[in-house]
């Protein structure tokens, strides 16, 4: 079960248990679900951004040099980026424990 911080009593709860902090799920690191991680070969990368647009987690983001870097805090290791990379620049490797 997820460890839940910020659990409060009913008096502090927003009306109807509404959540007023947008995007707070970013506190929830889904990277721990992963059994394999993507490794990017920058030499081969053509900076097309497929990995970025096809990531269901929005774990990839542009790094300013035109590359797209995967944030392993959130990457669940689905492997779509490696599968869809048109030049095979991403490989999935098993997470070592």
């Amino acid at each position: 079960m997820v460890k839940i911080d910020a659990i409060m009593g009913w008096k502090k709860l927003n009306l109807g248990a509404a959540i007023t902090e947008p995007g707070s799920a970013s506190l929830f690191k889904t990277g721990s679900w992963r059994t394999q991680r993507p490794i990017l070969d920058k030499e081969a990368c053509i900076r097309c951004g497929r990995c970025w647009i096809y990531c269901p987690e929005a774990a990839y983001s542009p790094n300013g040099d035109g590359y797209f870097i995967c944030n392993l805090d959130y990457c669940k290791g689905c492997g779509i980026c490696a599968e869809e990379c048109p030049v095979g620049a991403i490989t999935m490797v098993l997470e070592e424990i």
Binding site: V2, I4, I7, W10, L13, L15, A17, A18, I19, T20
Partner: peptide, 27 residues
């Protein structure tokens, strides 16, 4: 007091996990 407004995005009607459902109902 709270409303759906792009200037202040809120989430209304979230999933009430067991840790909060009782408090929501008590409220």
């Amino acid at each position: 007091k709270l409303r759906l407004d792009p200037d202040h995005p809120i989430t209304m009607g979230p999933v009430g996990v067991p840790e909060i459902y009782s408090e929501a109902r008590r409220q």
